[in-house]
Amino acid sequence: MSREAAAAARVVYAIAYREVIRFLKDRSRWLGFIAQPLLYLTLIGYGIAHSMTFRSVPAAAHVNYLSFMYPGILGMSVLFTAIFSGVGIIWDREFGFLREVLVAPVPRWAVAVGKALGIAAIVVVQSAVLLALAPVAGIPLGVGMAAGVLGVAAVMGFGLGSLGIAIAARMQSMEGFQFVMNVLTMPMFFLSGAMYPLRGLPVWLTVLTRVDPLAYGVDALRNVVYGAGQEVRLLVEYPVGLDLGVMAALAAVLAVLGAWAFEGQET
């Protein structure tokens, strides 16, 4: 390995290391990432499960809404954590730490990539914990399924984390953070199919759901979470290959975008 490559690898590791350490230490984040899905599943999930049925599956099929919602909630959790962590660069700038990184003799793309990888690691840990909720949603836990979830979460975390980095790299204020959360993250969540199936929708809504990157992540999670025989499989939208292909391509593009946004900035 050349000297440059070794240096870049070291930087990627350093940035990812910091990201993970910060996450592991932050008790309020642990509380948050466990409580939020739990609230969604119980307070919204149970309510809807007991009051509504799916229009888009045959009446004879017994599809449990909680089973439908569970992968969506995993996806939501990955989305919020990834964007939140990526946008954390704004905090680093505000509190001065970013200078320590920007003045170091390291390629900035490596900083962006390291951060995205760190975020991927965080969402994997998080998803592993949330797998414990699967039985609550009527989904049997299995090794293959768990491995699938963690793999998909890693790709999603890397891509969505890069999106957050790209947005935050040139952003100067905390207000910007609120804006991102409201205008970008919430619609991405709503349109992702996490809460309702993406079929039989009006055309305008369908178009929006098709361009939502999270929709492919959530669908990939459904693909790996549902066992072969489950009726809820009826609500999977695309083949898993397509989901993964779209997400991988997107993650690559977003990583380049994040790295690019990070280059050449002043502090």
């Binding site: 240096a7 070291r10 930087v11 590791y13 350093a14 290391y17 910091r18 350490i21 910060r22 230490k25 932050d26 509190f95 001065g96 730490f97 200078r99 320590e100 990184v101 003045v103 170091a104 003799p105 390291v106």
Partner: peptide, 26 residues
């Protein structure tokens, strides 16, 4: 460089801050 304004990661320990720096500078 030692900046005039703070530039530590205050969620990390003293040792972790130093280790991070060592990684950045090889």
């Amino acid at each position: 460089i030692v900046f005039q304004d703070h530039s530590l990661d205050d969620r990390l320990t003293a040792w972790e801050n130093l280790y991070f720096h060592a990684l950045l500078y090889g």
